[in-house]
Design a protein around this nucleic acid. Structure first.
Length: 445
DNA sequence: TACGTTACGGTTGAA
DNA sequence: TTTTCAACCGTAACG
């Protein structure tokens, strides 16, 4: 199902502002009465189902509605037509195709799994497809991060000017050198490491295209100015802890994302192949602690546009002040998933522990997370679940989270303990590392 | 029934 | 400014 909600927003802004306290009896939450909760099963090939779904609009007080009710500016964002598209999956959950689930939901998935709830139950309870639950849990088990990967952009260039210069030097020094020899020398000289060394074909292309005429000075050699580095093809948060301490530009790799370090010219490709490295997580965490961002409450002056959030995707992180660049996503969940009760408002405090700042979920699900869960009849519908009743969003959010699987690195887990309402015992209980059940558990086992 | 995998349509952002 | 490309997303279906 789709519900168009507003034009002009790549910053998706699903305008479903659900009843905050929509309980089981509150009319089904986002899915208003009369709205079919389930997309009809569509035979035939996969993938084309979404676009055929009838449009829905989830808006304040009215639950899901047909299209005409969906227009109108957002109360919180004057002038912005909070009209965008969302869809309802077979479980009645709302999602935006192509966009990550809200961090609050991702967090809850992990939390519930840590509480021993089966993934299938999590799937049903949160109304998220089990494939998604599986994916998130698997990723969490593998990386310790609940956050989605980096969306968009392209792979970092490995043929940085510095590399090209070295290749040129090698070629000039030995015109008969083979591309593979150049490659080896790049590695041996520390110009590149195994993660960012150009392929032989790339080197050949460089030799052919850029260094075809060795007599010609390189584009960056005519000036003493350092070559303009490609503007950090991927943001700092994707920095990968290469074995080599030297970046292709010779710059030292800074430890933490968001720290401009060498003025943002650390030409480290992002975390290819892994953008979810635990090191990133730890680095972020450490940095957050250092900057005090975790304790920050100043959720002010944040750009409402998710595109402005450096580091949200593959944008260069240093484009924004480091601290803000971190705080913003860190607090995003607080902003976006605010609940009158403790709810999931604490999720922001957990996010910095993850590999990425919050994804572009700003406005994607601009509803309280609890409300996200609220739509539709309670699950299980008519009976008290042996698991669910003990799991309230507030409790969960108040709990401590382990964002680093201890088994992965043999070090104590990094805990993002929310120092609020959780009792010490409960916090301790939750912070105790244990493998997640079901989906993805094997990855961490 | 539970769960891993994957095709699919979609979004995103760098080149 | 627009297009292309390759990454990622979650869903739904398959096994």
């Amino acid at each position: 199902m789709k519900f168009p909600l507003g034009p002009g927003s790549r910053a998706w802004s699903v305008c479903w502002q659900l009843e905050e306290a929509a309980g089981p009896g509150a009319g089904g939450g986002a899915l208003g009465s009369g709205t079919p909760r389930f997309s009809s099963r569509r035979p035939g090939r996969r993938g084309s189902r979404l676009s055929r779904a009838p449009p829905l609009c989830l808006s304040h007080g009215g639950g899901a509605r047909a299209l005409p009710d969906c227009g109108g500016p957002s109360p919180g964002r004057p002038g912005a037509m909070e009209q965008t598209y969302g869809e309802v999956n077979q479980l009645g959950g709302v999602f935006v195709n192509g966009r990550p689930l809200p961090n609050a939901i991702r967090l809850r998935i992990v939390e519930l799994a840590q509480l021993g709830i089966r993934p299938c139950d999590i799937s049903r309870q949160l109304r998220v497809s089990h494939g998604c639950v599986s994916k998130i849990l698997a990723r969490y088990n593998e990386t310790g991060s609940i956050l989605p990967g980096a969306i968009g952009g392209s792979k970092p260039r490995v043929t940085t000017p510095n590399v090209v210069k070295h290749i040129r030097d090698y070629k000039q020094g030995d015109p008969g050198i083979f591309a593979w020899e150049i490659r080896d020398r790049l590695l041996a000289d520390g110009v590149c490491d195994k993660y960012n060394v150009p392929s032989v074909s790339s080197i050949s292309r460089i030799l052919r295209n850029k260094i075809g005429s060795l007599a010609q000075p390189g584009p960056y050699e005519t000036s003493k100015q350092p070559p303009p580095q490609p503007a950090l093809p991927y943001n700092h948060i994707y920095q990968y802890p290469y074995p080599s301490p030297v970046s292709p530009t010779g710059a030292k790799i800074t430890g933490h994302h968001g720290v401009p370090g060498t003025a943002g010219h650390v030409s480290i490709p992002r975390s290819w192949p892994s953008a979810h490295s635990v090191s990133n997580i730890l680095g972020i965490r450490t940095f957050m602690e250092q900057t005090g961002a975790l304790t920050g409450g100043e959720a002010t002056s944040y750009s409402p546009k998710m595109e402005d959030w450096a580091g949200v995707n593959r944008t260069a992180f240093p484009t924004a002040p480091a601290v803000n660049g971190l705080e913003k996503p860190a607090l995003e969940a607080d902003i976006k998933y605010t609940q009158s009760t403790s709810g999931l408002s604490a999720v922001g405090g957990f996010l910095p522990a993850c590999a990425y700042p919050a994804s572009n979920q700003h406005g994607v699900y601009s509803a309280p997370a609890g409300s996200y869960l609220a739509p539709g009849p309670p699950w299980p519908p008519a009976q008290a679940s042996p698991l669910a009743p003990t799991v309230h969003s507030g409790e969960l959010a108040a709990a401590a989270m382990t964002f680093k699987h201890p088994s992965r690195e043999g070090s104590p887990p990094v805990l993002a303990v929310r120092p609020l309402t959780a009792s010490a015992a409960y916090t301790d209980y939750l912070s105790r590392p244990r493998p997640l059940r079901g989906f993805g558990a094997r990855a961490g086992a």
